[in-house]
Design a protein around this nucleic acid. Structure first.
Lengths: 355, 355
DNA sequence: CCAGAGGATGTTTACGTAAACATCCTCCAG
DNA sequence: CTGGAGGATGTTTACGTAAACATCCTCTGG
């Protein structure tokens, strides 16, 4: 075998074998090697086999830099995101990666350290120099607005979770649909009103969910309790829960994501407020663990896979037509009813754990 | 401003501006542009400013394909992984991405659809053609063994969570240390023995944790209950929990990850088995939500960030010295004690919920 | 005032691939 | 038997960059 030569290569960081080397060994021109390498027709089976044999023997692998230079494309999509610590980003990224792979595209990750304008600017500049044909941006809209100037021209972009549909191709979960369903579900159970545990102010998704919550209450003619602000983390949900447990007339809470709902459940339990008997809780996202919460969480299911798929499709279509397609695509959500919601306790009674 | 030209470029998928264009506008040679672009010395400030102005005016961005072709390196690390659905992979990836970014390297993602030999083989082949200087592989070891043949020679590799330290540079969490601490913690509380809810058979990490669990029990001269097999998901933990709840002498469970522990808690609660009063539970990973479980989960903290950092450092060092560095680096763990563990209930009594 | 050093800038070339074009051969129709 | 069509293969060239080498200019020391 050629184990020896492989080891040798590893040692010397060898000049990689090129088409010319293969051509020499196979006794053909390098163009013929290129044809075989790209599966073009017009190569006689005999010759083809000879070339393939030479490739195998030398361990030929095409040089993607040269290929990209010649072809003018990298077959790579860059993904800009702030963090992999939110379920949504991760799940979306996963879907993007597999959709892209199915289309023969690779994914280059560009994490942005901090959500500051400078960081985003810098990231876009770097992305511009990156070996990438197009980007997908997953981030908070306010920053995207400010950073727009830096987006390299002539590069196709698709954006997740944003309201920049006037300038970019945006794919978003139907935030309004989901949040509305959550609020209406709770009102439908008989709750007088619904409290909201919101995500961080800078988040576009959080803002949309909060806006919709307020609107849904207004539609139903219900008063809106003060909004509680979290930061997506279970911990912030816990802190909010401690506070909400002391509100005697709080019987229903819509948390802007499942992690915060988890913290909320934990705090309510600690404070002796039974869920769902005394307080109903609805989350958002439907993370895989939501069904294992105590109690199993009623939540709004987001189809992240679909979001990722559409982002890739969108950006590739733009690449092919060489034109931007501003506009927003909404991916539907659905309410998953589990055991964390129920009708409110009998009104006007002082809350007191049932013996 | 040049908004018009930018829009024009977007429309025509324009021949991108090259160094030659900048050189022409600035009235210098393209080599001078190259020098400015790479920050080389030996360019008079006057000239430099002129070049920079021309770059700005034309919106010049270096062509990374040409650059990579010339330099012989891509400044990119490929990351092969099976799934982004386990916390560990995601957190490790996140750390890899930021460490790499700090070193001026980008990350290209290569998800492997299914953990089959063919898939892995195919992935490695594709990776060989990818614009990548080195890889980091995050996957189950058994498959890595079988797929080894396909790993392109002369490319540096680092591997996470594997026992392939004889061939590759491996960085792993100290599985044995963590699992041992978990078991000893439970025994130390007075439990007669500890049950184990293991991860899937194919997982190297799962295997190590199970082996250590068994060894720690043997060391203490305790009998090992039958091993329960899960698949990392909360759901599998729930199913295991239903089963364990019926084992009257099960007072302590070590779950191989936090998600399964969550499911376990849920099932035990449903079956009326109090945690930690009747059954103690320890997890593994210390996911951010672990502190919000009911009860807050005692678990083994893994430092994924450190694992990612070391993987990047290792692979870059190999790249620089042009030599492989087989061997295994262990990243320490620590037991985080929360509220899911306690001494066992008084022995020999029939388990019966305390009124 | 001139030789020469050294800094600033320009010119040539190669990196590996693949399109475009050129050549050659075979085989068939007339 | 021959002209030519069309398939198989070879040759040239360009993609954008940056190293290596070449040139030119300025400034200093003798």
């Amino acid at each position: 075998m050629d184990e020896g030569s492989a080891a040798e290569q590893a040692r010397h960081r060898v000049k990689r074998v090129s088409m010319a080397d293969v051509a020499r060994l196979a006794g053909v021109s390098s163009q013929t090697v290129s044809r075989v390498s790209n599966g073009h027709a017009g190569v006689v089976p005999d010759t083809r086999e000879q070339v393939l044999a030479a490739m195998r023997e030398l361990g030929y692998r095409p040089n993607s830099a040269a290929r990209a230079l010649k072809r003018g494309e990298f077959r790579t999509i860059g993904v800009v995101l702030f963090t992999l610590s939110t379920t949504g980003n991760v799940r979306t990224l996963e879907a993007i990666a597999s959709s892209a792979a199915a289309e023969g595209y690779a994914i280059t990750l560009l994490p942005v350290a901090a959500p500051t304008h400078d960081e985003v600017r810098g990231a876009f500049t770097r992305l511009g120099e990156l070996a990438v044909d197009a980007f997908i941006v997953i981030m908070e809209v306010h920053l995207l607005d400010a950073a727009t100037v830096a987006l390299p021209p002539g590069v196709q972009v698709a954006v997740a979770d944003s309201n920049a549909g006037d300038r970019y191709s945006v794919v978003d979960t139907d935030q309004a649909g989901g949040a509305g369903a959550a609020v209406r579900h709770l009102l439908g159970l008989g709750h007088r009103t619904v409290w909201h545990l919101a995500g961080p102010e800078e988040s576009f998704a959080a803002q949309r969910r909060a806006d919709t919550w307020r609107a849904a209450l207004a539609d139903a003619g219900r008063p809106a309790p003060p909004l509680i602000r979290g930061d997506w983390s279970a911990d912030s949900g816990y802190r909010a829960g401690l506070r909400l447990a002391d509100e005697p007339d709080c019987t229903a809470v819509f948390a802007a994501n499942d992690q915060m709902a988890l913290g909320l459940l934990s705090a309510l339990h600690e404070k002796g407020r039974a869920v769902p008997e005394e307080v109903s809780v609805v989350g958002f996202d439907d993370i895989p663990e939501a069904g294992s919460f105590l109690p199993p969480l009623t939540t709004v299911h987001q189809d992240f896979a679909e979001v990722g798929r559409r982002l890739v499709q969108g950006v590739l279509r733009q690449l092919r037509t060489e034109s931007a397609e501003p506009g927003t695509t909404l991916v539907p959500t659905r309410l998953v009813e589990r055991a964390s919601t129920a009708p409110p306790p009998a009104p006007r009674e002082h809350p007191e754990p049932a013996g």
